[in-house]
Write a protein that binds this DNA or RNA. Structure first.
Lengths: 255, 255
DNA sequence: CGCGACTTTGACAGATGTCAAGGCTTGTGG
DNA sequence: CCACAAGCCTTGACATCTGTCAAAGTCGCG
């Protein structure tokens, strides 16, 4: 039942240490966390609304969406989780799920027991604080999504999402043109962007025709990064990538 | 400089203890937190974008909005804070502000130094966890706002917001008709709901004519709570009001 | 009393949703 | 290797919701 995970936890640890200073001992404690691997098929919920969960899930491979819903069954994705993300670290302190988690493609996750996370958080205050910080940074993404859905038109909104995912996949910085895997359908993108699949299709077509980005079935090919940033009105500072937050030296203030 | 606050901190403490079990000693530590009162005038930012803050703010009286923005200057409010709320508890672990905080009406806040919050969090692990939990519950509100803005039409969206604020002000439960203060203009509501002020006005008119709710200049009068819940497609479970999350007895699962 | 901010209303414009049909890809089984 | 089915993508015509613009009314405050 317990497997020694090597790479997935390293990825998660790297994200933690990029935001929070952790001592060797603390890092070892995280890498030593027991975890149970699990496969989830496409369009399968692995956490249901209202369910009381007893473990958090680390994405190893695939893509996970956090789903909200309105009364008529309209679906809204409120978060997208890629490999290396903990989908619900927050459930450690609030175990009753207020939204469902669904695999958007065949996905491998690692289940980590709350009890174990709780234990190392109590034992190492710096880890507790690091977990708290990760939840806060996730919330910063959510706030940006509210702005994106509320105050940008369909074209800009689509570009903004693609910019965010490009940054999170770590592809940015290799020049103006590059590509990354994004195993989401246009319907999924519509659920993220609060657009109909038809309109997502129109926007992707328009961006493709303008030579900005080509979104294939499971892969995004960025053709002109600068243009996409401009169209998407994208400022990556909310992602806190590679920014240590636990000291008091804030970076240069954003404009 | 340091004032012994009585009521505002009690309100904050009550919210904490409604979600997290805290011992007497821990509760006293929170009540003993040094704080500096401060008045903020209408439409004044007291935290600016990109600023590195060294204290968190407790709202004593008034109304505060957290603002995001797009390139064309379109404003989007991503959170509304009422008396008893800490507007930026999250800044303790991520001090660089990713959004601005602005008073929507003349507002009194108490500034609490991060250093002091940090100290009691380190000293009392349960307090650290309680703070973490508050941030997580705030994020649940944000997720619901994404759904609200993304997947509900203007009328439903407006009703949903009014339902949320009614619950947060604690007015619900006194029967089908009641009222509460909400010192926000229709422009502010538009910034929350991602609607133009003109359309907010149309929706409020329609809700008023249907005998659901009357939104005056600084006060909301609910005429038919049940109807408003139905129109707003409102399920209060995401608010976690009066729900202890730190034990493992989750409530009955939501439908 | 008058000014400024807020609210209210109407006519019109534009972005996005809805509906419907057909084409493409991919995987499966004969 | 081919045929088929299922899901996904693409496109066009039309409907509708919400935004835009402009003007007048109301309220509160100095």
């Amino acid at each position: 039942m317990s497997v020694l995970p090597s790479s997935p936890f390293h990825h998660f640890l790297a994200k933690l240490t990029s935001h929070s200073a952790l001592k060797q001992e603390e890092q070892h404690a995280i890498l030593a966390l027991p975890a149970r691997p699990m496969q989830v098929q496409t369009n399968r919920d692995f956490v249901r609304l209202g369910e009381c969960v007893s473990h958090s899930c680390l994405v190893v491979e695939g893509l996970v969406g956090r789903f909200g819903q309105n009364a008529e069954g309209g679906r809204q994705i409120t978060a997208l989780h890629i490999p290396g993300d903990m989908t619900d670290l927050h459930s450690v302190v609030a175990p009753e799920a207020t939204s469902a988690l669904q695999a958007l493609t065949t996905t491998t996750i690692m289940q980590v027991a709350h009890a174990d996370l709780h234990t190392i958080a109590r034992r190492f205050p710096s880890i507790s604080e690091a977990f708290w910080r990760e939840c806060v940074l996730d919330a910063a993404l959510l706030a940006e999504w509210v702005v994106n859905v509320g105050r940008r038109n369909a074209r800009s909104r689509t570009a903004h999402l693609l910019c965010e995912m490009a940054c999170r996949y770590g592809g940015v910085g290799e020049g103006s043109s590059f590509s990354f895997a994004l195993p989401a359908t246009q319907t999924h993108l519509g659920d993220v962007l609060a657009l109909t699949p038809v309109h997502v299709n129109r926007m992707l077509k328009s961006l493709r025709e303008d030579g900005v980005v080509d979104v294939g079935s499971r892969r995004v090919t960025v053709l002109d990064w600068e243009a996409m940033v401009t169209i998407g009105d994208f400022d990556p500072s909310y992602l806190h990538i590679g920014k240590s937050s636990n000291d008091n030296r804030c970076g240069v203030a954003a404009a």
